[in-house]
Nucleic acid binder design. Structure first.
Lengths: 273, 273
DNA sequence: CGCAGTTTTGATTCATCTCAATTTGTGTGG
DNA sequence: CCACACAAATTGAGATGAATCAAAACTGCG
């Protein structure tokens, strides 16, 4: 029942490292998990053909979003997970006083929607920061398939675990690092995720504003801007508005770890736990 | 195959709200999920008898830990999830400079181990803050059972989702709140979790040190202590070393929300998203 | 081409960290 | 049971990194 790989003009994600270009405007919908270019990062996984076949049997829908459009809101009944095919998203909650608090950024291949499973309703809002496309995966259907394929079930659990581990990493960043280190690890995290998608590790576009970065990192936008300037002066990065070049990734890494913990320098004799 | 509810002296968790007493020293191992007193919060869930039956069929092991003992370390191969039967645990990572960063506290009925699924190895350390008992749930076995029971599978997903949502909540706390608000929401979170277990919402013992609280909240222990003192002066709580009484929970709640965001007071006209 | 949103940069303020001293609590051995 | 040592908690005084307030420069869009 599953469609064979009809050629799509969706910009290929695999292949040589390139600058991440704005998403093409003239795209056809992708066709099959088997042929999907973000499949390795998605639910079917890279290893097993059968999981991809199974997913295709679901014949799930795609949904196209324009920049600024919402995928769902806090309170929206939970029915589906979403896989980002293309585009860039942010998740956020709106506090009582009406201000947005960014909880994450999502790019191609990443799953969105885990926040809704527990209470059958989403707890965060998700909005497209640029035009994009998502695969819609009805959750009960997914669970039925997962019970038929241990591989698919495991992949789902891996991805949820990854979300947990990633969030723990963010908690660490927020709890232990000063402004400079937070921004540095943010840039390294983005870089790493771009690499995993075949983009350049050293050069990319920030799809979000300084304010959104600051919100995510628990900093004010002015502070983010200042840190960018300082990192540039230290020749660690090059900033030109939304364009970022990492000139010295090891240098950035050093900022996040050895030093620049919240102004509490290492004890005389570090010992492993 | 499953054992019937042999009476255990494990202190009953359900029932009237009581002060959370130190865990009894003379306990027998619990016997069956069907009869378990933390079952509602655990994998079998409260609703379905069948899930509890299934879990019992697993005849999983229990493991007793003394205060200070480790359940697992970062790097330990991932094989099982653990359900806290009794006791109080902390999870933490050890940074390169040898200092501990607390990532969470776990109490009865809560699952531990999700951090290990993604990479087949645990990423955090877990240690008992008091004597305790955990159920050991071999993960591949659990997955096999989950594929036979959609209810069990869903409950597993709910619990993972809950972990994700809870961590997002912590991220929010760290990113947006000042010291006072962080401590207040920490106390309210603990209180709520104690209530869910049948303990008193208003009075409980802190099983962790000020330093561990501070680590978790991204504060120094002195700051935690100062906030405790201040909240006490404001008649919101009463502190006597490890013993905490919440005198005015709504007052605490008010601290976490309406005000006391990181010194950025609400905009003129708050509007809902 | 102008206007709104975004970003940068500067001057000042303030919350939290740091350093330090003291008190209190806890477990151990005589 | 007491004394001792050590860990944990409290409190104060001063230092500092990030927030705040403010203004100017830049970007992009209609």
């Amino acid at each position: 029942m599953r469609a064979m790989a009809v050629v799509s003009s969706e910009s290929s994600v695999k292949g040589g490292a390139r600058h991440n270009a704005p998403s093409a405007t003239a795209q056809r919908y992708p066709t099959s998990c088997v042929a999907c270019n973000v499949r390795d990062l998605c639910l079917p996984g890279g290893d097993s053909e059968s999981a991809a076949d199974l997913m295709d049997d679901m014949s799930y829908a795609r949904r196209r979003l324009r920049r600024g459009e919402s995928l769902y809101h806090a309170g929206t009944p939970f029915r589906s997970l979403y896989v980002v095919r293309s585009g860039f998203f942010k998740s956020f909650v709106v506090t009582e006083d009406g201000s947005e608090q960014v909880t994450g950024f999502q790019m191609a291949g990443e799953l969105i929607g885990f926040d809704g499973i527990e209470s059958d309703a989403h707890t965060v809002n998700v909005r497209a920061l640029e035009d994009g496309l998502v695969c819609v995966i009805p959750f009960t259907q997914l669970e039925r398939m997962a019970s038929r394929s241990l591989g698919l079930q495991r992949q789902l659990h891996r991805l949820m675990s990854r979300a947990i581990v990633h969030n723990q990493g963010v908690m660490m960043v927020l709890a232990t690092m000063n402004a400079e280190a937070r921004v540095a690890s943010f840039l390294l995290d983005l870089s790493q995720r771009f690499v995993a998608r075949g983009y350049s590790a050293a050069e990319f576009l920030l799809r979000m504003t300084r304010e959104e970065i600051g919100s995510y990192l628990g900093l004010k936008l002015e502070t983010v801007s200042r840190v960018f300037s300082k990192l540039q002066q230290s020749r660690l990065i090059e900033v030109e508005n939304k364009r970022i070049s990492l000139l010295d990734a090891p240098g950035l890494r050093a900022l996040t770890g050895g030093e620049n913990r919240k102004r509490d320098v290492s004890p005389p004799l570090a010992r492993a736990g």
